[in-house]
Design a protein around this nucleic acid. Structure first.
Lengths: 136, 136
DNA sequence: GTTCCTGCAAAAGCTTTGCAGAAGA
DNA sequence: TCTTCTGCAAAGCTTTTGCAGGAAC
C-alpha cells in the first residue's frame, strides 16, 4: 500500500493523516514482524528524529480503535502491533521469542465462538518451539 | 478438592506443599473468577497477615510451571490466574471487565493447531459485551 | 542441619499523563 | 485561526530481584 493509499485510508476512518501515523501504519504493513513499541520506536526515530515512544502508544491506540491494526498481548511483558487484520492466530516460540502468524479457517473460528456471547474480537495465541529452533 | 488432596497433588508434582501454596491453589480452585494478583493478595492476606504480593507471583509461577494453573493475559494491564486446566476459552466483557469461561470442543481446538508447529499451550481470548451488560 | 521458601524493600521496565509547542485543516 | 497531534519530562503500576529470616523435611 502506497503512502497515498494509507493517507486516504486514514481519512476514510476519520483519522488525521499525520506524518507519524502514516509512517507507523506503513511500517506495520511492510514489516509483518509484530514489533514491540520499542522496536517501532527505534525504527521510526531514524526517519523522525523527534519521534517518541509516547507517539508510538498514542498512534497505536488510535489505529487499533479504528480497526486498522491489532494490539497483540501474547507476550505479557510488552505490547506488540500487527497490521494484519485478516483472520489468523499467533504462535510464539519460547526459544527464540519470534512470533509467527498461522491461518485459521472461517469454520474453525466460528466453532470457537461462545454460544451465549457475541464476541467482537477473538485472539488465538499458541506457544511452543518453532521448527527452526527444534532443529537445533 | 480438600486441602489434604491439594497437599498430595503438590507433592506428586514435586512441589513443597507450603501453607501459602496450598492456600493459593485452594483459592483458585474454589473461586473460578480469574483473579488478578492483587485480588489474590487481598483475599489471602487475611489468612496470612504477612502474605505478600511477591509470594503471589512466586507461587503462581511455580504452579503454572507444574501445569496446575494457567496464567491469563487477556487483560494487558495485569496477569490473572485460573485453576481450570480443562480446554476452554476466555471471554472478557469490555463493559464490566468480568472474565467468563466458554467451552471449546476437542475438535475445534485441533482445527486451530498450526500445521508446521507443535503448540504446547493454546489460549483463546474473546472480547465483547456479556449478556448481562447487553440488557442494560 | 540443609535446603528451599517467604516476604520486605527497592529496583526495573513498560505505559500513561500533563502540558507546551507544533502541525494540520 | 482553531482544533488536534506530538513529544518531553515525570509519574504510575505491575512485576521482578536481592537477600535475610523462617519454614519444611
Amino acid at each position: 500500500m502506497t503512502k497515498q493509499e494509507i493517507t486516504s485510508l486514514l481519512r476514510t476512518r476519520g483519522i488525521q493523516p499525520t506524518q507519524q501515523r502514516i509512517a507507523v501504519l506503513d511500517y506495520l504493513q511492510t514489516h509483518r514482524t509484530h514489533p514491540t513499541a520499542d522496536t517501532l520506536y527505534r525504527a521510526l526515530v531514524e526517519e523522525f528524529p523527534t519521534f517518541s515512544r509516547t507517539t508510538v502508544y498514542n498512534t497505536a491506540r488510535t489505529l487499533a480503535k479504528a480497526g486498522l491494526i491489532r494490539v497483540i498481548t501474547i507476550d505479557a511483558e510488552e505490547q506488540r502491533f500487527d497490521a494484519g487484520m485478516e483472520q489468523h492466530g499467533h504462535f510464539r516460540c519460547t526459544d527464540c521469542g519470534s512470533i509467527f502468524d498461522f491461518p485459521i479457517s472461517q469454520q474453525a473460528m466460528q466453532n470457537l465462538s461462545p454460544a451465549s456471547y457475541t464476541p467482537v474480537t477473538m485472539e488465538v495465541y499458541a506457544t511452543g518451539v518453532c521448527p527452526h529452533c527444534q532443529q537445533q
